[in-house]
């Protein structure tokens, strides 16, 4: 049941986007997210969507997979749309009934917000789809490394993040296994009151915790056996280098940002 989650999943590939420097990808994704909030009208938002479509095409990730990343937040999208339709009252009124007023302004804002949320999610999932978790945490570590005074803790935090991300699929698998085992012993997880259902989770979470602790010990031993002693003096097997296409990506994002800002100035209204 939990195997269907695609958020944060990595799809190996060899596209330009895959090969880009993870640091650059991380920075550009951040930039993209910021710029998407700078957008003030449909023209600039259109430019952002266009840029995103280009990136998706270059990444060679199937559109179906991209759409799947939006699925988990579907309810949030619908909720935002409804709220925006109901609470924006400018423009011509299209429909009125008791306290419900639907105006053109409301619909425009709703559409605007929906596109904005979807682009946000797609952009960030594009990062995780094309970059392995290890590379992302590596990039975070590298980007934060100018903070010299807390350097060692930067490494520790990055290592912790890597390990945490690495074990998410393992834990999900373990969870499914233990659930099946307890179900086979007649555990009833589907019916009963809220309290009963919460109680029914005890036989699953206790073994899960115990397994996790055991695994943590084993991992710690294994790391020590391989002489792990923190970040000091540690060199890398994979050196990160900026390539030509990284620069192209950066230029592309700068152009898009400039475009968005100028479109904002040229068209001061939402539509």
């Amino acid at each position: 049941m939990m195997k269907d989650i695609t958020i944060g999943q990595y799809f190996p590939g060899n596209s330009v986007i895959h090969r880009m420097d993870p640091r650059m990808k991380l920075v550009l994704t951040f930039l993209y997210i910021i710029v998407i909030f700078v957008c003030k009208n449909f023209y600039s938002l259109g430019a952002m969507v266009f840029a995103l479509v280009l990136m998706v095409l270059f990444s060679q990730i199937p559109v179906k997979t991209i759409l799947k990343s939006v699925k988990p937040i579907f309810i949030i999208i619908v909720f935002t749309a409804i709220l925006n339709v109901l609470y924006t009252t400018n423009g011509t009124i299209l429909f009125e009934w008791k306290f419900i007023h639907i105006s053109t302004g409301g619909i425009y804002t709703a559409v605007f917000m929906v596109i904005r949320i979807i682009s946000l999610v797609v952009a960030s999932s594009l990062l995780t789809y094309t970059t392995s978790p290890t590379l992302i945490t590596d990039a975070i570590e590298r980007l934060l490394s100018p903070l010299k005074f807390m350097r060692n803790s930067v490494h520790t935090i990055a290592m912790m993040m890597t390990i945490a991300l690495r074990f998410i699929p393992t834990l999900i698998e373990e969870f499914d296994k233990i659930t099946s085992a307890q179900k086979a012993r007649g555990a009833d997880l589907e019916t009963g009151t809220l309290v009963e259902r919460a109680k029914a989770l005890i036989p699953i979470f206790i073994p899960l915790f115990i397994t996790s602790f055991r695994r943590a010990y084993e991992l710690a031993y294994a790391m020590e056996c391989r002489c792990y002693h923190g970040g000091e003096g540690r060199t890398r097997m994979k050196q990160m280098k900026l390539h030509g296409f990284d620069v192209v990506g950066l230029v592309f994002m700068v152009v898009v940002t400039a475009g968005v800002v100028s479109l904002n100035i040229v068209f001061p209204h939402l539509i």
């Binding site: 233990i178 085992a181 012993r185 036989p203 206790i206 073994p207």
Partner: peptide, 8 residues
């Protein structure tokens, strides 16, 4: 398999 991991 490994049923001991389901003890709680």
């Amino acid at each position: 398999q490994y049923p001991e991991y389901q003890l709680f």
